[in-house]
Simulated scan of single mutants.
Amino acid sequence: MVADASPKLPGISAQELLAKVQTAKVDGLSGTVQSSADLGLPALPGVAGGSDSPSGAVTELLSGKHTARVAFAAPDKARVSVLDTMAERVWTMDGKSAWAYDSAEREAVKLNLPAHQPGKPAAGTPKSYDPQSVAKQFLDAIDPSTKVDVSGTEKVAGRDAYKLRLIPRADQTTVGSVTLAVDSKTWVPLQVTVLPRTGKDPAVQVGFSQVSFDVPAASTFAFTPPKGVKVTEPKTPTTRPDRPAKPIDPKAVPGKPNLKAGNEPTVIGEGWSAVVLVRGAELTGANGPLDQLLAGAQQVQGSWGKGKIVTSKMVNVLLTDDGRVFAGLVTPQTLQDAAAKAPR
């Protein structure tokens, strides 16, 4: 997607490269991110962006291709502009306030943020459009069973990069391998490529097509709603400064599947076998593709109750009759095992 020829770089061991990428820090960056996903699933209610896990990294980009302009400045400034067909969605925060804007809906949401605690990352913008954040979620899944190697070099966004490859051996996961293109100067991941256990084509790829490591100007993170846009200002979040507020999603509008208030996603399990759990998902009145998907889904039952399993080459989803949604880069049986362990 954004890779060029293979450059010649000094040799480096997998452990040395892993240590560098895990400790990489930059004061700011900006650029254009391209992402593509071929998972065969439509958007599912409440699953997107629900966890700091490999599943959360992938389920926020369930299908199709996306282009986003991104900018980050440490410690609490971020902006993501997703370019849809004939529309734009913007999330931005300047350390004091956060905005979510959807040009198609002509609506914007503004939040006044609690005081930021030094050293804590900015929260609220979609992580799936930040290759560094996506990479971190896979790096956090590394356990003793994970094979790590350096599989070569490549050019990404015009920059020389090493290819750090993670190969999980856990039987529960559908992930075949994850390759991080790591910048040879800043050690920041420039691209993440996820391959399924079956097949050779990437299931997900997120990476920069253009990037600058200059700190963006403060004005980059300011937002003024266009004339005629409806602006909503919910009550100031009551979360503690060291706990990030739930991301704002301007697409969560009436008539679309959504979560009931107060039911935030949680994670069952760790590493490659992690499963995202969403409670209180409303599946009634869903859109056509979801109705068709559920109609052809496999009926299953167990000690956890009854439900349907939706499968794809990487993401599998269990939707229970009592409104719970279990999703992950795991086998269908792992989803049912997680459902059996989850308290009702």
Rank of each mutant, 00 (worst) to 15 (best):
L180F: 05
V204T: 13
V188H: 00
K147D: 10
V211E: 01
V82W: 04
V90Q: 04
A135R: 03
Q117G: 15
S209V: 13
K147H: 05
D84Q: 13
F208W: 03
S145D: 13
Q205I: 15
F138C: 08
G199W: 04
W99C: 01
D143I: 09
Q132R: 11
P131V: 07
P216M: 07
G158H: 02
P121T: 03
S133H: 02
K136S: 09
D84I: 12
D84V: 11
M93G: 07
A222F: 01
A217W: 01
Q191D: 12
V156A: 06
I167Q: 09
E88K: 08
P144M: 12
P168I: 04
S219D: 12
F221P: 00
P131C: 06
A135G: 10
F221K: 00
K200Q: 07
R89P: 06
E107K: 14
G152Q: 11
A87W: 02
T220I: 03
Q132D: 08
L195Y: 02
M93H: 12
S97G: 03
P114E: 07
S103C: 09
P216S: 07
M93S: 08
A203Y: 03
V109I: 15
D102L: 02
T193Y: 02
A161E: 06
K110Y: 14
T146N: 12
A170C: 01
A87R: 07
V182R: 02
A115T: 12
S219M: 00
A115E: 14
Y162H: 05
T179N: 03
K163N: 07
P202I: 10
K136A: 12
D201E: 13
A100K: 04
R106M: 09
V182G: 04
V215C: 05
V150A: 03
T174P: 08
V175K: 07
E154I: 13
V134G: 01
T146A: 14
K120C: 12
G199C: 02
Q132H: 08
L139C: 12
P189S: 06
A108W: 04
P126C: 05
P196G: 09
T174E: 15
V134D: 00
K163T: 05
F213K: 00
T85P: 08
T173M: 09
T186Q: 02
D84C: 10
S97Q: 13
D84K: 13
P216T: 07
P168N: 07
N112I: 14
T173Q: 10
V150G: 01
S212K: 08
A135T: 05
L166M: 08
W187N: 15
G124W: 11
A78C: 07
S133I: 09
R159K: 12
D143V: 10
A87F: 02
W187L: 11
A87E: 06
L113V: 09
N112R: 14
Q172M: 08
G199I: 06
